[in-house]
Amino acid sequence: MEIVMSAVIGLLFAVAVYLMFSRNILRVLIGTLLLSHSVHLILLTMAGLQRGAPPLLFLEAGSYTDPLPQALILTAIVINFGITAFVSVLVYRTYQEHKSVDLYDMRGAKDE
């Protein structure tokens, strides 16, 4: 399972990076989203998958899944949400100011 997951994570990462190489700022935005997914999954996979019950003590299971990566990922998801929201608003404002979503056109070549 972990090996297959790792392969999928690699694919997610590769596509995310590829999208971030794009000229279009919207694709970059989607790329960052995918990148965060891949990072979340990597954290989960590292600890081993499907080992024991969910980390809820009232289940009274013999072994539980590692709760620490989950806490880390939860934090990461929320922070990533904040960042994504900020970047999307930035994209929106950039388009308003420059009337372009092409990163090549937005280079600050004017005052150099």
Partner: peptide, 18 residues
Amino acid sequence: LVVGAAMTFILTIVEDDS
């Protein structure tokens, strides 16, 4: 905070008329 932040993110864009 989460309610406030999530609503702020979306409403500021939606309410932006210009």
